[in-house]
Structure formats: structure tokens, C-alpha cells
Simulated assay, not measured.
Amino acid sequence: MTATVLEPAKSSPQAAPSRRDRPRRGREQPRALTLVLAVLAMLVSLVPFYWLINTSLKTGAELSSGSLYPTNASLNNYLDVLQDGEFLTALGNSLIVGAVTTTLALTFASFAAYALARLKLPRKGLLLGLVLSVTTFPVISIAAPMFKIWSDIGLYDTLLGLIIPKLTFALPMAIFVLTSFFREIPFELEESALIDGATPFSAFRKVILPLAVPGIATTAILVFISVWNEFLLAVTLTSTPDARTVPVAIAYFSGVSEFDNPIGTISAASVLVTLPLVVLVLVFQKRIVAGLTAGAIKG
């Protein structure tokens, strides 16, 4: 009889992680860290705005407290602001100055950016550098001379006197953004339109501008926000509520009486002033993202 030798059962080893799983697991930690940092950055960014809303809902002695939330929330500060005729006038002035400046900046910048991006001009880089050099001048250095000139020619304390200098600083930014965007539009599209009999202007109007809508929308929002928030020129070139913009009007805010703390009404006015910008960004957020990323993508 032959003896049967029984071999010991081999334990099945655990399956080793595949090479595809290892990089995936390695990427999970950086992604989680990025997510945590993004959440922290968002919270840090929202804290000032939350504190602004928190303060705007407080009244009386509670304004001096450092509580994280109002115990007796009230809309009285907002009602006081909306019943202030000077604030409503300043709000209208800001809308007029912002809309006119943005429209003029986009109109002039579109032609200038098209020439710099698509026409054969000598030393285009130098021209663009000269345009951008305007933004290097500190506003405070020209505020006093402009105050003297505007006073002499009758533009002081007028909306036109605010639009002209704001347009001077808005144009370089608009030209730079649109130039980088126009460069990414394929030249073949424009050449096809010219071959079909279109004039250079009609090709610009019917081909280039429709394709540049995301960049134009992005530029419009950036210009409007910068004009809306500008303070130094607005406070230097105005002296009466008839021409003041919103940032200057808020700086001149006072309480209902001389014994009131104006921080509540200032906070409420600041929230009301921020709302149009928030709505603007929310409505055009897709255009903003498309415009900001289009110039960075090359086919």
C-alpha cells in the first residue's frame, strides 16, 4: 500500500494592490487636502461679509457688543438707508457712472484690442506696454492736479467729471483683457469672411465680436466693479450729494441723530451696495469663467 503524502494547504495570499490603485490612492490625499484648504479659504472670505450682515441687523446698544449674531434682529437700519434721499441719489449716480464708463470702455477697447491682436502693426508689444503703463500711475498722484483742472473748466462736482478719469483707468485693463482674448480666435474664420466678400469692419462685427462675447462679458463685469468701488477720485472730484457716488455717500453717513452710532446704517448701506455686484456675478458666472479661461487655452 502506497502512503499518500498530504501537502499542507497553501494559504491564499491577499491580492496585491494593482498599479492603477496605487496612484489613485496617492491622489486622494492631495485632493482631500485641496478640498479642506478650499473650504477654509471660502470661510475666511465669507467671515467679513457675515460680520457686515450681522452688524447691519443690530440696533441700539447691541451695536457695541461683539456677539456673533443679533439677539433682536431688526431691519431698521435698512429702512433708514432706503429712506435717505442722498443715498438713493448716490446709488443712481453710481449706476450712471458705471454704465456709461463700462460702455465707453468696451467700445473703444474693442477696436484697440482688435488692432493690437489681429492687424499687422509695427511694435504692437510696445504699444500695449504703453497702454498698460497708465495703470502704474497711483491715483493719488493725479487727484490734486485733476481737481485744479476740473475746477477751472467747470467739470468739478459733475458726473462727466467722474466718467472721464474713471474711463482713463478702465481702458487699459479692458484693452489688455480683450487683446489676449482676440488672439485666441482663429484667423481662418476672419479670412473666410473676407473671401466671401465681407469688409474688414463687417468681419469684425459679424464674426469676431460674436465669438468674443465671453471675453467682452468678463471685461464688462471687471470694469463695472472697479468703477463702482472706486473711492479716491470720487471723493476728490465731488463736493455735494448731487454728484457723489455710493462709496463716498457711505463715508459721509451719520446716524439719525447726533448721538446715534452710524455703524449700523453704514453696514446696511454696504450690504445694499454689494448686492448688485453679487447678482451681476451670479447671472454672468458662466460668461466670466469662459472669458477668464479662454485666453489660457491654446488649440
Rank of each mutant, 00 (worst) to 15 (best):
85 G>S: 14
279 V>D: 02
93 N>L: 01
157 D>G: 12
31 R>C: 00
5 V>W: 08
171 L>R: 04
157 D>T: 05
196 D>Q: 03
292 L>G: 02
163 I>E: 01
153 I>Y: 09
135 T>H: 14
268 A>S: 06
250 I>L: 13
176 F>M: 09
238 T>S: 10
283 V>W: 08
43 L>W: 12
25 R>A: 12
82 L>S: 04
43 L>G: 10
13 P>F: 07
7 E>C: 03
98 G>K: 00
41 A>C: 09
14 Q>D: 11
287 R>V: 00
172 P>F: 06
110 S>L: 12
131 V>H: 00
187 F>C: 00
28 E>V: 14
200 P>F: 08
31 R>E: 12
111 F>G: 07
246 V>L: 14
175 I>M: 11
298 K>F: 04
219 T>C: 12
87 F>D: 02
85 G>H: 10
76 N>I: 11
25 R>I: 13
26 G>Q: 14
200 P>M: 04
65 S>E: 10
74 S>R: 11
157 D>R: 08
295 G>Y: 05
233 L>I: 06
145 P>V: 03
58 K>E: 04
72 N>G: 11
5 V>D: 12
218 T>P: 07
175 I>E: 11
76 N>H: 12
175 I>K: 10
264 G>A: 07
100 V>I: 15
214 P>C: 09
100 V>L: 12
147 F>R: 13
253 F>K: 01
37 L>G: 10
285 Q>N: 14
55 T>C: 02
293 T>M: 06
177 V>L: 15
174 A>W: 06
133 S>K: 06
212 A>N: 02
10 K>L: 15
112 A>C: 11
277 L>V: 15
125 G>P: 02
49 F>T: 12
158 T>P: 07
290 A>K: 07
29 Q>M: 11
244 R>A: 11
115 A>I: 01
292 L>D: 03
258 E>I: 15
158 T>M: 03
114 Y>G: 03
187 F>D: 15
116 L>Y: 07
271 V>P: 02
233 L>H: 08
85 G>T: 11
279 V>S: 00
237 L>S: 10
155 L>D: 04
134 V>H: 06
260 D>C: 09
113 A>T: 04
233 L>Q: 05
140 I>W: 07
269 A>P: 07
50 Y>P: 06
257 S>D: 10
246 V>D: 05
42 M>W: 05
264 G>Y: 08
187 F>T: 13
163 I>C: 02
236 T>M: 12
212 A>Y: 04
184 E>P: 00
158 T>E: 10
24 R>V: 13
122 P>F: 08
141 S>G: 05
291 G>Q: 02
142 I>C: 12
202 S>M: 14
138 P>Y: 08
62 E>T: 05
287 R>Q: 14
40 L>W: 09
72 N>H: 14
161 G>M: 06
223 V>H: 05
194 L>D: 00
253 F>R: 03
9 A>Q: 15
290 A>F: 01
2 T>I: 14
159 L>I: 09
260 D>A: 15
170 A>L: 02
157 D>E: 09
206 K>F: 11
244 R>C: 08
298 K>I: 03
132 L>T: 04
88 L>V: 13
263 I>P: 00
122 P>H: 09
70 P>G: 03
70 P>V: 08
50 Y>F: 15
286 K>C: 02
141 S>W: 08
236 T>I: 01
187 F>E: 14
164 I>Q: 12
148 K>M: 13
297 I>F: 10
